[in-house]
Amino acid sequence: MIFLAGVSKRFGSKWAVQSIDLDIPRGSILGLLGHNGAGKSTIIGMMLGHVRPSAGQISINGYDVRRQRSLALARVGAIFETPAFYDYLSGMTNLRIFCEYSAIPSPERLQAAIRFVQLEDCIHNPVATYSHGMRQRLALAQALLPDPELLILDEPMNGLDPEGVAEMRQLIGKLNHEWGLTILLATHGLHEIQALCTSVAILKQGKMVFHGVWQTSPEKTLEEFYLQTVRTNPPISTPVS
């Protein structure tokens, strides 16, 4: 579904991301882990065409993101850490505006997305009146409107209260299990990775130190596995199966 080969990005003289190879199969949930500044958001930015890679190739659904951006992103939805909306407009107007950058949504599809995120009661209120959790749900609704096959989530649980985290976790699980969506989840939350992901990619200073299924046991939690991997492993440039 997503394929990255030798992807690097340099800002000025600093390498933000170096030689990343990644292959995310259809229907899976990949967790992207790493400390602040490890390069998670840069990788996501390159996948979505916001950031131009300095080297390497990225394709989504077989289409090159740089050369065939419209085709590559046709069925991709994305949510960022702090979802940004036009606060002075209603949730419904925001959804229409964002969706109409690619296609005119049918009223049924709009309603279905709003129902899915349970915002029916306040969808006509200005977004300025929404709580952080409601904004995240609105962001999820706009990501679902293009009928995506791939969902890219950058820190979607940040700033949510425990109830909001549980709700978001449940929604993500449902989207993968019931709707069959492929999901890339960049997060700091090891609990989310453990609860949702089928595999994990760990980044350290812009380089990948692990990609595959993590091994845990009653004696070794995911947290211990992560810390050990980050502390001891040298960067790798090819996926570990």
Binding site: L73, V76, A78, P83, P146
Partner: peptide, 10 residues
């Protein structure tokens, strides 16, 4: 940050 949301569209 709204431009990032827009640019995530095709």
């Amino acid at each position: 940050g709204t431009l990032s949301m827009i640019l995530s569209r095709p």
